Computed example of a mutant assay.
Amino acid sequence: MEFTHLQGLIAAPFTPMHADGSIHLELIPDYYALLKANGVTGAFICGSTGEGVSLTLQEKKAVAEAWAACSKNDPAFSVMPLLGGTCIADAKELAKHAQEIGLDAVSFTAPSYFKPANVQMLAACCKEIAAVVPDMPFYYYHIPVLTGVGFPMYDLLQAIDGLIPNFAGVKYTHEDFMDFLSCLHFKNGKYDMVWGRDENMLPALAIGTKASIGSTYNYAAPLYHQLMEAFEAGDLLKAQALQQQSIDMIRLLGKYGGIATGKAYMKLIGLDCGGFRLPVKNMDAVAFEQFKQEVANLSFDSYCSKKPAVAR
């Protein structure tokens, strides 16, 4: 079974929240319009950035339905949900739901409490879930820094090849370029290898990635379009400078508390997605004012994503 490989920038959207922590589904059409206006080609929903592990099964379905409603008439925009990684039964239910509402692909990451003992057990988990949606592309999400499951993906491709007909590829959020390159070359590029580290996009482009999924594409897509254009034009000095801008921007995520800082960036571009749920820490008002000044010092306005003009 062959699937079209993904291309370009795919955002990992935040799940919008109200002040009381409930999901803010009404904001998703505006979110979709923002991504489209900035040349983003898809959305990887309910992942790490989207707090999938902090959402209930019904909330995940509601978020998926909201994105499906926005993109149903847009074949140029792909939506892929992360199914979760701890309860296989829930992942199967979410996969079938994704197919029913017309999403484009599904993704699964390794169980992180009872971890698979070896790559064959991880492949068995993938097989059980992928089998309930045999006609949908199925991606494995490799993020060992969060799951604690760090098998080489080259070994996983060897284990699943011929075992899972609808296995499409890997969302690769790790820094092992040797493994990533070997996966790109496996069976003459049979599987779609999608890069997942925004701060390392340039070296990933250099070894052949054609698509990237990341959180900073939500609010700084123009920066990465410029980076990709500079690389394609052979202007490595410009590409390096743009990657450094990305790194400087991403450093503020760590300085101000981690993943929730991304929602502060979203607030600055005019799409307030609320805060993160516990146990993630949100910055207070004083820190936000300091953050705004540091962001201004990075000339963020010159490369941030812009909301589309409202039709009159």
Rank of each mutant, 00 (worst) to 15 (best):
E2F: 04
F3D: 08
T4K: 13
G8C: 02
P16H: 04
D20Y: 08
H24F: 13
E26Q: 12
L27A: 13
Y32Q: 01
Y32K: 05
A33K: 15
L35S: 07
K36T: 01
G39M: 08
V40E: 03
I45Q: 02
C46E: 01
E51T: 06
V53G: 03
T56P: 00
L57M: 06
E59R: 09
K60H: 03
K61R: 15
E65L: 14
W67I: 05
A68L: 01
K72C: 06
A76L: 11
F77S: 04
V79F: 08
V79G: 03
P81S: 09
L82H: 15
L82T: 04
L83P: 02
G84L: 02
I88C: 13
A95E: 05
K96Q: 12
A98Q: 01
E100S: 15
E100V: 05
E100R: 15
A105W: 01
T109R: 11
P111I: 05
F114M: 07
A124M: 04
C125H: 14
C126W: 01
C126D: 11
C126P: 01
E128Y: 07
F138E: 05
Y140P: 01
Y141S: 11
H142Y: 12
H142C: 02
L146P: 00
G148L: 03
P152D: 10
Y154S: 15
D161G: 09
G162Q: 10
P165C: 12
N166F: 05
F167M: 10
A168Q: 09
Y172A: 12
Y172D: 10
Y172C: 08
Y172W: 14
L181N: 14
S182G: 09
Y191G: 12
A204I: 00
I207R: 13
G208E: 00
T209I: 12
A211L: 08
S215W: 04
Y219M: 10
Y219R: 08
H225Y: 05
Q226W: 01
L227A: 15
M228V: 05
L236N: 10
A239H: 02
Q240W: 12
A241R: 14
L242V: 00
Q243S: 09
L252E: 03
L253K: 14
Y256M: 04
G258R: 01
I259R: 08
T261E: 03
M266L: 11
L268R: 13
I269L: 13
G270W: 02
F276M: 07
L278C: 14
M283I: 13
D284Q: 02
F288K: 00
E289D: 07
F291P: 00
F291G: 04
K292N: 07
F300A: 07
S302Q: 15
Y303W: 13
Y303N: 00
K306N: 03
